[in-house]
Protein backbone atom coordinates (compact mmCIF):
# COMPACT_ATOMS: atom_id res chain seq x y z
CA UNK A 1 0.00 0.00 0.00
CA UNK A 2 1.53 3.33 -0.98
CA UNK A 3 1.03 6.45 0.99
CA UNK A 4 1.61 9.72 -0.80
CA UNK A 5 4.53 11.29 0.95
CA UNK A 6 4.46 14.64 -0.82
CA UNK A 7 3.39 17.02 1.97
CA UNK A 8 1.78 19.40 -0.54
CA UNK A 9 -0.54 16.61 -1.47
CA UNK A 10 -1.35 15.57 2.07
CA UNK A 11 -4.94 14.57 2.32
CA UNK A 12 -7.23 12.09 3.90
CA UNK A 13 -10.61 11.48 5.37
CA UNK A 14 -11.82 9.57 8.35
CA UNK A 15 -15.02 8.17 9.76
CA UNK A 16 -15.32 7.55 13.48
CA UNK A 17 -18.06 5.12 14.59
CA UNK A 18 -20.38 6.56 11.98
CA UNK A 19 -24.00 5.50 12.05
CA UNK A 20 -26.39 6.64 9.34
CA UNK A 21 -30.10 6.06 9.40
CA UNK A 22 -32.36 6.88 6.46
CA UNK A 23 -36.11 6.61 6.86
CA UNK A 24 -35.70 4.49 9.97
CA UNK A 25 -33.30 2.05 8.35
CA UNK A 26 -29.71 1.71 9.41
CA UNK A 27 -27.68 2.24 6.25
CA UNK A 28 -24.27 2.46 7.89
CA UNK A 29 -23.52 0.72 11.14
CA UNK A 30 -20.60 1.91 13.25
CA UNK A 31 -18.20 2.45 10.38
CA UNK A 32 -14.70 3.51 11.36
CA UNK A 33 -12.13 4.25 8.67
CA UNK A 34 -8.93 6.22 8.33
CA UNK A 35 -8.10 6.75 4.68
CA UNK A 36 -5.08 8.58 3.35
CA UNK A 37 -4.08 6.52 0.35
CA UNK A 38 -4.13 8.21 -3.03
CA UNK A 39 -6.29 5.70 -4.92
CA UNK A 40 -9.07 4.09 -2.97
CA UNK A 41 -11.83 1.88 -4.30
CA UNK A 42 -15.16 1.20 -2.65
CA UNK A 43 -16.97 -1.99 -3.57
CA UNK A 44 -20.00 -3.87 -2.36
CA UNK A 45 -23.38 -5.07 -3.47
CA UNK A 46 -26.29 -2.79 -4.24
CA UNK A 47 -27.72 -1.39 -1.05
CA UNK A 48 -24.56 -2.03 0.94
CA UNK A 49 -24.22 1.65 1.80
CA UNK A 50 -21.53 2.76 -0.68
CA UNK A 51 -23.39 5.73 -2.11
CA UNK A 52 -24.48 6.81 1.35
CA UNK A 53 -20.95 6.64 2.67
CA UNK A 54 -19.51 8.85 -0.05
CA UNK A 55 -22.36 11.33 0.39
CA UNK A 56 -21.25 11.80 3.99
CA UNK A 57 -17.92 13.07 2.71
CA UNK A 58 -19.33 16.14 1.02
CA UNK A 59 -22.21 16.83 3.35
CA UNK A 60 -25.01 15.68 1.10
CA UNK A 61 -25.89 13.37 3.98
CA UNK A 62 -25.19 13.92 7.65
CA UNK A 63 -24.32 11.08 10.04
CA UNK A 64 -26.92 10.13 12.61
CA UNK A 65 -24.06 9.68 15.06
CA UNK A 66 -20.30 9.52 14.90
CA UNK A 67 -17.94 11.91 13.16
CA UNK A 68 -16.72 12.45 9.61
CA UNK A 69 -13.58 14.43 8.81
CA UNK A 70 -12.24 15.44 5.42
CA UNK A 71 -8.83 17.12 5.50
CA UNK A 72 -9.61 18.16 9.05
CA UNK A 73 -12.97 19.68 8.13
CA UNK A 74 -16.42 18.57 9.07
CA UNK A 75 -18.60 18.01 5.98
CA UNK A 76 -21.71 18.13 8.16
CA UNK A 77 -21.32 21.93 7.91
CA UNK A 78 -23.02 21.49 4.55
CA UNK A 79 -22.08 20.76 0.95
CA UNK A 80 -21.67 24.46 0.14
CA UNK A 81 -18.86 24.79 2.68
CA UNK A 82 -17.01 21.65 1.60
CA UNK A 83 -17.49 21.93 -2.19
CA UNK A 84 -14.01 23.43 -2.62
CA UNK A 85 -12.47 20.44 -0.82
CA UNK A 86 -14.44 17.52 -2.20
CA UNK A 87 -15.29 17.11 -5.85
CA UNK A 88 -18.11 14.74 -6.64
CA UNK A 89 -18.68 12.91 -9.93
CA UNK A 90 -22.06 11.28 -10.33
CA UNK A 91 -23.09 8.24 -12.30
CA UNK A 92 -25.05 10.05 -14.98
CA UNK A 93 -23.49 13.19 -16.52
CA UNK A 94 -26.94 14.42 -17.50
CA UNK A 95 -27.79 14.75 -13.83
CA UNK A 96 -24.72 16.80 -13.21
CA UNK A 97 -24.28 19.15 -16.14
CA UNK A 98 -26.28 22.25 -15.43
CA UNK A 99 -25.33 24.62 -18.21
CA UNK A 100 -25.83 24.48 -21.96
CA UNK A 101 -22.21 25.14 -22.90
CA UNK A 102 -18.98 23.59 -21.66
CA UNK A 103 -17.41 26.90 -20.63
CA UNK A 104 -20.38 27.93 -18.50
CA UNK A 105 -20.42 24.50 -16.90
CA UNK A 106 -16.75 24.66 -15.96
CA UNK A 107 -17.00 28.26 -14.76
CA UNK A 108 -19.94 27.51 -12.48
CA UNK A 109 -18.03 26.04 -9.55
CA UNK A 110 -15.55 28.94 -9.64
CA UNK A 111 -18.38 31.40 -9.18
CA UNK A 112 -19.27 29.52 -6.02
CA UNK A 113 -15.69 29.89 -4.83
CA UNK A 114 -16.23 33.64 -5.00
CA UNK A 115 -14.83 34.56 -8.42
CA UNK A 116 -16.61 37.22 -10.42
CA UNK A 117 -18.42 36.16 -13.59
CA UNK A 118 -15.59 37.43 -15.79
CA UNK A 119 -12.77 35.97 -13.71
CA UNK A 120 -14.54 32.62 -13.53
CA UNK A 121 -14.94 32.50 -17.31
CA UNK A 122 -11.32 33.45 -17.93
CA UNK A 123 -10.09 30.90 -15.43
CA UNK A 124 -12.33 28.19 -16.86
CA UNK A 125 -11.06 28.91 -20.35
CA UNK A 126 -7.44 28.80 -19.17
CA UNK A 127 -8.19 25.49 -17.50
CA UNK A 128 -9.70 24.03 -20.67
CA UNK A 129 -6.56 25.17 -22.49
CA UNK A 130 -4.29 23.33 -20.05
CA UNK A 131 -6.40 20.23 -20.71
CA UNK A 132 -5.99 20.73 -24.45
CA UNK A 133 -9.74 21.19 -24.84
CA UNK A 134 -10.03 24.92 -25.51
CA UNK A 135 -12.07 24.11 -28.59
CA UNK A 136 -14.77 22.64 -26.37
CA UNK A 137 -15.49 25.96 -24.65
CA UNK A 138 -18.43 27.05 -26.77
CA UNK A 139 -19.75 23.58 -27.52
CA UNK A 140 -23.28 22.78 -26.45
CA UNK A 141 -23.12 19.98 -23.91
CA UNK A 142 -25.89 17.97 -25.53
CA UNK A 143 -23.71 17.60 -28.63
CA UNK A 144 -20.94 15.82 -26.70
CA UNK A 145 -20.53 12.06 -26.53
CA UNK A 146 -21.12 10.28 -23.21
CA UNK A 147 -17.38 10.01 -22.59
CA UNK A 148 -16.86 13.69 -23.37
CA UNK A 149 -19.74 14.61 -21.06
CA UNK A 150 -18.20 12.63 -18.23
CA UNK A 151 -14.88 14.41 -18.88
CA UNK A 152 -16.67 17.77 -18.71
CA UNK A 153 -18.14 16.72 -15.36
CA UNK A 154 -14.66 15.92 -14.11
CA UNK A 155 -13.25 19.20 -15.52
CA UNK A 156 -16.02 21.14 -13.77
CA UNK A 157 -14.98 19.57 -10.49
CA UNK A 158 -11.23 19.62 -11.08
CA UNK A 159 -11.17 23.34 -11.84
CA UNK A 160 -12.22 23.94 -8.23
CA UNK A 161 -8.98 22.22 -7.13
CA UNK A 162 -10.47 19.86 -4.59
CA UNK A 163 -8.25 17.65 -2.44
CA UNK A 164 -10.51 14.64 -2.77
CA UNK A 165 -12.46 13.49 -5.79
CA UNK A 166 -15.31 11.10 -5.18
CA UNK A 167 -16.56 9.11 -8.16
CA UNK A 168 -19.86 7.27 -7.80
CA UNK A 169 -19.82 4.63 -10.56
CA UNK A 170 -18.51 7.05 -13.16
CA UNK A 171 -18.14 4.51 -15.94
CA UNK A 172 -21.57 2.99 -16.22
CA UNK A 173 -22.44 4.97 -19.34
CA UNK A 174 -19.04 4.61 -21.02
CA UNK A 175 -17.90 2.05 -23.55
CA UNK A 176 -14.77 0.02 -22.82
CA UNK A 177 -12.14 2.12 -24.68
CA UNK A 178 -13.56 5.36 -23.28
CA UNK A 179 -13.54 3.86 -19.82
CA UNK A 180 -9.87 2.94 -20.16
CA UNK A 181 -9.04 6.40 -21.44
CA UNK A 182 -10.83 8.22 -18.64
CA UNK A 183 -9.38 5.86 -16.06
CA UNK A 184 -5.83 6.45 -17.31
CA UNK A 185 -6.41 10.14 -17.23
CA UNK A 186 -7.80 9.97 -13.69
CA UNK A 187 -4.74 8.12 -12.50
CA UNK A 188 -2.55 11.06 -13.52
CA UNK A 189 -4.36 13.49 -11.22
CA UNK A 190 -2.61 14.55 -8.03
CA UNK A 191 -5.85 14.40 -6.04
CA UNK A 192 -6.96 11.65 -3.75
CA UNK A 193 -9.53 9.51 -5.53
CA UNK A 194 -12.30 7.53 -3.95
CA UNK A 195 -14.15 5.49 -6.52
CA UNK A 196 -17.22 3.32 -6.32
CA UNK A 197 -17.23 0.80 -9.10
CA UNK A 198 -18.94 -2.43 -10.05
CA UNK A 199 -16.41 -2.91 -12.83
CA UNK A 200 -13.80 -4.62 -10.75
CA UNK A 201 -11.08 -4.47 -13.39
CA UNK A 202 -11.24 -0.67 -13.16
CA UNK A 203 -9.72 -0.95 -9.72
CA UNK A 204 -6.37 -2.27 -10.96
CA UNK A 205 -3.53 -0.17 -9.67
CA UNK A 206 -5.49 1.14 -6.70
CA UNK A 207 -3.79 1.39 -3.35
CA UNK A 208 -6.60 0.22 -1.17
CA UNK A 209 -10.03 -1.34 -1.43
CA UNK A 210 -12.84 -1.06 1.03
CA UNK A 211 -15.63 -3.62 0.82
CA UNK A 212 -18.93 -2.63 2.33
CA UNK A 213 -21.54 -5.20 3.18
CA UNK A 214 -24.82 -4.41 4.86
CA UNK A 215 -23.61 -1.08 6.15
CA UNK A 216 -20.41 -2.43 7.62
CA UNK A 217 -16.82 -2.81 6.47
CA UNK A 218 -16.39 -6.46 5.54
CA UNK A 219 -12.99 -6.17 3.94
CA UNK A 220 -10.34 -3.48 3.83
CA UNK A 221 -6.80 -3.45 2.53
CA UNK A 222 -4.70 -4.65 -0.36
CA UNK A 223 -6.86 -4.71 -3.53
CA UNK A 224 -5.91 -8.17 -4.81
CA UNK A 225 -6.81 -9.78 -1.50
CA UNK A 226 -10.10 -7.87 -1.10
CA UNK A 227 -11.14 -8.49 -4.69
CA UNK A 228 -10.48 -12.17 -4.25
CA UNK A 229 -12.59 -12.35 -1.11
CA UNK A 230 -15.36 -10.34 -2.76
CA UNK A 231 -15.37 -12.64 -5.77
CA UNK A 232 -15.52 -15.71 -3.57
CA UNK A 233 -18.45 -14.27 -1.65
CA UNK A 234 -20.21 -13.35 -4.89
CA UNK A 235 -19.78 -16.84 -6.29
CA UNK A 236 -21.42 -18.18 -3.15
CA UNK A 237 -24.48 -16.41 -4.46
CA UNK A 238 -26.77 -13.64 -3.40
CA UNK A 239 -30.39 -13.76 -2.37
CA UNK A 240 -32.46 -11.37 -4.42
Amino acid sequence: MTLLTDPAASFGFSLERVVLERTGQRVLNEVTLEVNQARVGLIGNNGSGKSSLVRLLNGLLKPTSGEVRVNGRNPADGPEAIAGQVGFIFQNPDHQIIFPTVLEEVAFGLRNLGRSRKAAQAEALAFLETQGRADWAQRPVHSLSEGQKQLVCIFAVLVMQPKLIVLDEPFSALDYPTRLHVLNWLHQLPQQLLMISHELDCLDGFDRLIWLDNGQVRGDGEPARILDAYRQASLAGVTL
Binding site: N58, G59, L60, P79, E80, A83, G84, V86, G87, F88, F90, N92, H95, Q96, I98, F108, G109, R111, N112, L113, G114, S116, R117, A156, V157, M160
Partner: peptide, 22 residues
Amino acid sequence: RLSDHVAEALAARGGIPNDSTH
Protein backbone atom coordinates in the same frame (compact mmCIF):
# COMPACT_ATOMS: atom_id res chain seq x y z
CA ARG B 1 -36.36 12.12 -9.45
CA LEU B 2 -34.21 13.88 -12.03
CA SER B 3 -34.62 17.16 -10.18
CA ASP B 4 -33.48 15.40 -6.98
CA HIS B 5 -30.29 14.27 -8.73
CA VAL B 6 -29.69 17.74 -10.14
CA ALA B 7 -30.23 19.37 -6.75
CA GLU B 8 -27.68 17.00 -5.28
CA ALA B 9 -25.16 17.74 -8.02
CA LEU B 10 -25.72 21.47 -7.54
CA ALA B 11 -25.14 21.29 -3.81
CA ALA B 12 -22.02 19.20 -4.41
CA ARG B 13 -20.50 22.10 -6.30
CA GLY B 14 -21.41 24.72 -3.77
CA GLY B 15 -25.03 25.57 -4.48
CA ILE B 16 -26.37 28.52 -6.42
CA PRO B 17 -23.95 31.44 -6.71
CA ASN B 18 -25.32 34.71 -5.48
CA ASP B 19 -24.73 37.39 -8.11
CA SER B 20 -25.55 40.28 -5.84
CA THR B 21 -22.31 39.73 -3.97
CA HIS B 22 -20.24 40.59 -7.04
